[in-house]
Amino acid sequence: MTAAPDSPLATLWCPAANREPRRDGRVPDMLVLHYTGMESSDAALDWLTREESKVSCHYLVDEDGRIAQMVRESERAWHAGQSLWAGETDLNSCSLGIEIHNPGHEFGYRDFPEAQMRSVEALCLDILRRHPIRAERVVAHSDIAPGRKRDPGEKFDWARLAQAGVGLWVQPAPLGEDQGLGPGDEGQEVLKLQQDLAGLGYGVELTSTYGTGLEKVVEAFQRHFRQARIDGRADTSTRDTLSRLLTAMQATPVA
């Protein structure tokens, strides 16, 4: 295997042990963004390349903006774990994964530096030039594993990426004073919320009941698309933002 990375932006090729062929001949049509959740990028790079870690990713971007590639884009990396998006469960076979170094919520979650965000933006654009990835299929790890994962988190600048042409985004509807829908609520409004979240791609059961699972999905949605308040309640701001996103998604032409 040649040591040249797929992306000319990557300055380090550090092959991971955990990689394999994509199943069923899948080609990447999804991009998943993560944070490392470790105290240093060097430790993250070491862990992501070790066989015993049982994880891997295609790229790692450190806080200075340096990019390392660990798994070929043509190969299946082990980054998504137990996850679901748009009805699919084997997301490792259809996705590319980018780890962005940040200590995360466990070790002092902090803003993503400008140099890092500049490199993430450039890398995403470079990937999109090679792969037909629709805007709604550029997602957070928390989107595909609500309640289990929180990365890259509410400090990540999704709006910036969208302005550059990466991912789906609308201006979030302003916060209000209403409590909206929440745990224990039932009925047609809850069902409509579940249908809309599922329409965007989230794994949601259509039960008409606002249970813990739906609360976690709403939190994940807010962490990505309405970051001003993350409380798991579907207030008017949350539901309006979701409606705007669905409209924007439907208006996006299919490649």
Rank of each mutant, 00 (worst) to 15 (best):
P103W: 04
F112W: 12
E20K: 08
E186C: 09
V217I: 14
Q116K: 02
A198M: 02
D46R: 10
S7M: 04
D29Q: 14
E73I: 01
L91P: 05
D42L: 13
S7Q: 04
P113M: 03
D62P: 05
E73Q: 08
L31K: 05
H141P: 00
T212S: 15
A164Y: 00
G153C: 06
E88Q: 14
M249H: 04
I98G: 03
A255S: 13
G167K: 04
T89Q: 15
D240I: 01
A44D: 06
A234E: 13
S53L: 10
H141Y: 11
N102E: 12
D178F: 03
T209Y: 10
L9F: 04
G165R: 02
D62T: 07
M249N: 10
E20V: 07
R19H: 02
E186K: 11
R229I: 09
S243G: 15
M117S: 09
I127S: 09
T247L: 15
I98D: 03
L91Y: 00
V139L: 11
I144R: 04
P152E: 12
Q116A: 05
E106T: 11
T11M: 11
A10R: 01
E51K: 14
Q194L: 06
A220S: 13
M30K: 10
T238Y: 09
D111G: 11
T49N: 11
A16Q: 06
L175W: 05
A16D: 08
R72M: 05
L96Y: 02
N102M: 06
R76A: 09
T252K: 14
Y109S: 13
M1P: 02
V138Q: 08
T247F: 14
D29F: 00
R50W: 12
G182D: 11
E63G: 06
E39T: 14
M249E: 14
T236A: 15
Q171D: 15
I230S: 06
S142R: 08
P152T: 11
I133K: 04
A220W: 01
W78M: 14
T247Y: 14
L48Y: 14
L31S: 07
E121N: 02
R23D: 15
H131S: 14
G81S: 02
D46F: 01
E99M: 13
R244D: 15
L168Y: 00
G108S: 10
E73G: 04
E52G: 10
V166M: 07
P5I: 08
R226S: 13
Q250M: 09
E75F: 00
R23F: 07
N18C: 05
G25M: 05
R76P: 05
I100R: 01
L191E: 13
